[in-house]
Design a protein around this nucleic acid. Sequence first.
DNA 1: GTCTATAACGAGATAGAC
DNA 2: GTCTATCTCGTTATAGAC
Lengths: 199, 199
Amino acid sequence: MDTAQRILDVAERLVQTQGFNGFSYADIAAELGITKASLHYHFATKAALGSALITRYGAEFGRALEEIDQSAVDAREKLRRYAGLYADVLRQHRMCLCGMLAADYTTLPAAMRSGVKEFFDLNESWLARIFDEGRKQGALRFRGPPLDSARLLLGSLEGAMLVARSYGDPERFTSAAQRLLAELSGRRKLAGRTDRAQR
Amino acid sequence: MDTAQRILDVAERLVQTQGFNGFSYADIAAELGITKASLHYHFATKAALGSALITRYGAEFGRALEEIDQSAVDAREKLRRYAGLYADVLRQHRMCLCGMLAADYTTLPAAMRSGVKEFFDLNESWLARIFDEGRKQGALRFRGPPLDSARLLLGSLEGAMLVARSYGDPERFTSAAQRLLAELSGRRKLAGRTDRAQR
DNA sequence: GTCTATAACGAGATAGAC
DNA sequence: GTCTATCTCGTTATAGAC
């Protein structure tokens, strides 16, 4: 019903699958059965559309993080569910919106660049807090400042996603994510089926 | 002198900084002071240019890996130098060519898609061998199959690069890489200045 | 091997009717 | 809000002279 939201839905998927320079207003218009001119009524420029995408994506992601937080499980489980958010995106054959935009970064308008960094900042500070709390509660053991672990995890998940998507193989992602969480949470023995894969 | 190579040089940098859909023949022509028509003489289509880029990049990367191998240092040092290859690229404000193309993946012609995966395969099998040899020689300790560690390291370095480039901060990459290598090589204590950043 | 010229098309964007 | 029509420019690519 809400045309603006439907435009954002289609545009979001196109950015996540093809990059910001890999689709056009014509693609969105064709899919929604409206004209390019109508798109320009809702989003005057492609830059404005891009900024709106980042804002909405960041807000939605923030809500997902809150929900993970309030589910009150321990830090290790919070990290698992954080990685699960990425896995969900990948299962839709998509890349993280801002991970994709990070690739397009130098070609983006200034407002979008700021938005991408804010998204990463949001992720890093949330993760850093989880790492910090987890250490204090004894649920996690890791080396160095919580922010370092947060950055490592964020970057690694983005990269695992990027590569896994090329192979069309989500399992490549989940396998890497599982191992990463084990290493970054101080676990000395892996849980689950990967145990049997150990030497 | 060799026009084809100079074209590849410029195109390579443009792909690594702006993505395959973020530049045009006009950009290359302007920078080299030749016409677009001349470009088409050397590379008939953009797809052909893209494939040539991947081939050359893969060959060059393969030579770099050989060189690391023959420098005969231990496995841990080989991994450090492998990560150093990425750091060198990032210092030039570039993304890994194939990491960038992985983002553009769905929009690429089939030949380029295959080339990207072959590049990743090359990296993974080289890394897997290093991990395997390192474990056998007692230089590395890690969990699970060598290929899993190889894939995790490859993806994580690509992602760390992707994010670090958005911030224009190579240190974000080197910090993540250092930590990754420590975790993946079984080191129980970190070496170097990051030691002092521990709690 | 490089040029001029141009084709053929798609891009983002606007004017103005309905 | 959505449309038709159009503008302007950039895109990949080709023909043919030098």
